[in-house]
């Protein structure tokens, strides 16, 4: 019960959208394909679904090559960014669709619909029109619809990107729980690292058609494969490891890497200050160089002490040539 992507290449005319990508997903595992827009991650997902033809390479399920298997016989569920619910069917009709295609008995069908709507927190929504649902509710129905026929693999294409921020964060947590409860094997495409890290057991970083790094979220977050990946994961300043007391050549700093704290060992002067939702962002000058930091309210011009937050650091493996 596992998916194996082997040396997949997809070209559109002159451009290569996916370039010789290989990736395995184990049974019950959730893998996130994380990368900036246009990196080829959606194309890869659509190739797995059978909606795109690969120019080279294979998608295998339990070792069987799926190249000749059409979309509707793959048994892979797909959730789009914007739901794509059938507007002419109600909520129950949407969830039932895959079950009807699989010729499931009506009684079993109805029970399964109830179960799934309960699972996604839309109990009693059976006969609502899908056009009257909010964006978040639509995505929940889309998820229930995809899960209903018990797909071998669930494919999620930016499932939360169309929602507003607060809802997105809430739904990401819900979705992570749902995927665990359903025991789903899933491939999630996203450009949002918070989303990827919330949902996935493993994260695959993709850039310019290639997978640059695969690993558990904490590892990828802490040790990005290269500078570009570190930048994509929020690092905007690179310093020698000695600056934060590490032995590495280079360490990437995120905005939260330095925090104002009287017990800190670094010392600087506050240059700018911006209030954010739950903290204050500062621009601090340390030894003639500017750094971002977070902290309690301070005045511009104040002299402050700063501590290093480990979560804000990305440790880059020492590269012999260290080119940027």
């Amino acid at each position: 019960m596992s998916l194996r992507i082997e040396h997949i290449t997809v070209r559109y005319g002159q451009t290569t959208a996916v370039d010789d990508v290989s990736l395995d997903i184990a049974d019950g595992e959730v893998v996130a394909l994380l990368g900036p827009s246009g990196c080829g991650k959606s194309t890869l997902l659509r190739t797995v679904a059978g909606l795109e033809k690969a120019d080279d390479g294979e998608v295998r399920w339990d070792g069987d090559d799926l190249t000749g298997t059409p979309v509707h016989e793959r048994g892979f569920g797909l959730v789009f960014q914007d739901g794509q619910l059938f507007p002419h069917r109600d909520v129950a009709g949407n969830v039932a669709f895959g079950l009807r295609m699989a010729k499931v008995d009506k009684e079993v069908r109805l029970k399964r619909i109830d179960e799934l709507l309960e699972l996604v927190g839309l109990d009693g929504y059976q006969h609502r029109k899908v056009t009257q649902l909010s964006g978040g509710e639509q995505q929940r129905v889309a998820l229930a619809r995809a899960l209903a026929p018990q797909p071998r693999l669930l494919l999620l294409d930016e499932p939360l990107s169309a929602l507003d921020r607060a809802l997105r964060e809430q739904l990401a947590v819900d979705l992570a729980r749902l995927l665990r409860e359903a025991g789903a094997t899933a491939l999630v495409v996203t450009h949002d690292h918070d989303e990827a890290f919330t949902l996935a057991d493993r994260v695959a970083i993709m850039r310019k058609g290639k997978i640059r790094q695969v690993g558990p979220p904490a590892e990828v977050w802490r040790e990005p494969a290269d500078v570009e990946t570190a930048k994509f994961l929020g690092c905007n300043k690179f310093v020698p490891g000695s600056f934060v007391g590490l032995a590495n050549d280079r360490v990437g700093l995120r905005a939260s890497a330095l925090r104002v704290d009287p017990a800190g060992t670094l010392e600087g002067v506050v240059l700018e200050r911006v209030h954010r939702r739950d903290h204050v962002r500062l621009l601090v000058e340390i030894d003639g160089d500017e750094y971002e930091a977070v902290g309690p309210v301070t005045e511009i011009g104040d002299r402050v002490r700063l501590v290093v937050e480990q979560d804000g650091l990305a440790v880059l493996r020492d590269e012999p040539h260290g080119g940027q």
Binding site: L51, P70, R74, F76, L78, Q84, F86, F97, M101, P151
Partner: peptide
């Protein structure tokens, strides 16, 4: 993508037209 959604749920091309 609406047609594609139907296909991933197990509807063949003729069934997609119909449904």
């Amino acid at each position: 993508r609406l047609r594609q959604a139907a296909a991933t749920l197990g509807a063949g091309p003729a069934r997609v037209w119909l449904e």
